[in-house]
Design a binder for these strands. Sequence first.
DNA 1: CTCCGATTTCAGAATATACTGAAATTACAG
DNA 2: CTGTAATTTCAGTATATTCTGAAATCGGAG
Lengths: 190, 190
Amino acid sequence: MSLQTELTATAAVPLSAAARKFIVHWGEMGSPWGVNRTVAQIHALLYIAPRPLTAEEIAGTLSVARSNVSTSLRELQGWGIVRVAHVLGDRRDYFESMRDVWEMFRIILEERKRREVDPTLAVLRECVALLDRARPADAEAKQRLSELLEFMETMDSAYREFRTLSIADLRRFLKLRGGMRKVAGLILSR
Amino acid sequence: MSLQTELTATAAVPLSAAARKFIVHWGEMGSPWGVNRTVAQIHALLYIAPRPLTAEEIAGTLSVARSNVSTSLRELQGWGIVRVAHVLGDRRDYFESMRDVWEMFRIILEERKRREVDPTLAVLRECVALLDRARPADAEAKQRLSELLEFMETMDSAYREFRTLSIADLRRFLKLRGGMRKVAGLILSR
DNA sequence: CTCCGATTTCAGAATATACTGAAATTACAG
DNA sequence: CTGTAATTTCAGTATATTCTGAAATCGGAG
């Protein structure tokens, strides 16, 4: 028997009231972001945990099936915001969340763009191409889809540039009070 | 019997292949954005339609129940991107989508901030306040939640400023090639 | 190779969400 | 007020998603 297991049947990590509140809320906010409750709760737990946790501990703390934890951890690893760590002399996998919120934000943005924006751009291009040789009755649809495509392409390019900024620069820029005003003054009104 | 009704049992609007492709795709993209398929499809249909449509026509075109259309239209009106229009001498409600993609983008961003970001900020503030008088064991959680709160507050302020720009300025800014580089050069490296 | 703890897979159960159709309500014409 | 088209509400049904627990797989120790 490993040193850590002792006689705990369900190895739950103790949580303060604040920690519980945060985990529950993060779980509820998951849906609009396209991740289910358990995945979001596990992420919340790992984010505030003072040390990496085993799947067993996560299951015990959140009261969900061990198998569910396994699947959810795989998804979080797929997003690239959770990774495996190991403890010397312990065969079990320990999991820890990325700490840097700015980096996490960037990764999630990138991933969502890949999954949602890129396929939509592809479809819009196809549709506009199809409508180029269409009847006059489809003129309105063509106009609308072209505008939508142009909008999304503008956003996409802006995002690509924004992505080239270092986290440090991005942070400094967003923290500037009156930053947007300055941008408007310096760059726009030429 | 009104002039428009004639003998059509299910009043469907004819759709080109491109239009169908767009509507189907937009419906699939709905989930990650927190709206269900029908709502997203109705929005897509109204967006490309050359004229306002009745609920009946929408139901016929998309093959969904009339009552479902009613509920979904209500939701779209709640988001503020669809509105009712009327035709002289016709009692029925006609529905049309907002046309300006930039304005639609702004409205959706605003609404999502209100529904997702604001409540999370409130919870994080509560949690950090609770952890201020907590045991040393919770030091890590406090640190993590403080950082997350600071990050979200920075984003929130940046968004508030960004919101003060006119659509025209915003558009010009995002369309600037090398815009981000210029911002970095002019504002950041002081 | 065998054993055993750790992990993953997956079929079925539980739950949540979306949708339908009938009934109720609304609102306008006559 | 009465009749009727238009719309909304809502209880029940259908569908989709999430979760569980048992079984299979993995992988290292001996």
